[in-house]
């Protein structure tokens, strides 16, 4: 099948790639644009480790056609840090030992960012709801919940400054 050109903003930069019309966004990110932040887990939309933000909305890159992202703004975990300065969520994940094998971590961070972007003061139930679509096999979820709540506590202070 003929390749089609796709252009979108990836973590703030204009990027273009040729994609098969049936290629998922995840395939184009990983194979076309060398962004290995989002992981290929189940490939069926159940595990959440491919999660990205498309125009600010949390989406599963494995179930999103790349061609449908034309002109969109795509954010992945690779763009979370500001140069050498990690995002408060990334620091909190380290401080709370919220990663073990690390395979779910990109999706967990992205789902958490989507939550904090719309609700900087979430309850424990809000956090559980936000990561309910992301599977973790190592941590028992509790350290991840604690890390997200801790990151939320640091956010307002940063935003004030």
């Amino acid at each position: 099948m003929a390749k089609v050109p796709v252009q979108f903003r990836l973590n703030g930069s204009d990027r273009a790639a040729f994609a098969d019309p049936a290629d998922s966004l995840l395939t184009v990110l990983r194979r076309g644009l060398n962004d290995f932040g989002p992981k290929y887990g189940c490939g069926q939309g159940t595990c959440g480790t491919c999660s990205v933000l498309i125009d600010g909305e949390l989406r599963l890159a494995c179930l999103t056609l790349a061609a449908s992202c034309e002109g969109a703004s795509v954010e992945t975990v690779s763009g979370m840090a500001d140069g050498p300065n990690l995002h408060p969520l990334q620091n909190a994940f380290m401080e709370h030992f919220a990663a073990q094998c690390g395979f779910c971590t990109p999706g967990m961070l992205t789902a958490a960012k989507a939550l904090l972007d719309r609700n900087p003061n979430p309850s424990r139930e809000d956090v559980i709801d936000a990561i309910a679509g992301n599977i973790c096999r190592c941590t028992g979820y509790e350290p991840i919940i604690q890390a997200i709540l801790a990151a939320a506590r640091t956010l307002p202070a940063q935003r004030r400054s």
Partner: peptide, 14 residues
């Protein structure tokens, strides 16, 4: 100590 705690919490969930 932190990694022991991490393993015990995750393992209890398992």
């Amino acid at each position: 100590p932190k990694m022991v705690e991490q393993q015990l919490v995750g393992g209890a969930w398992m």
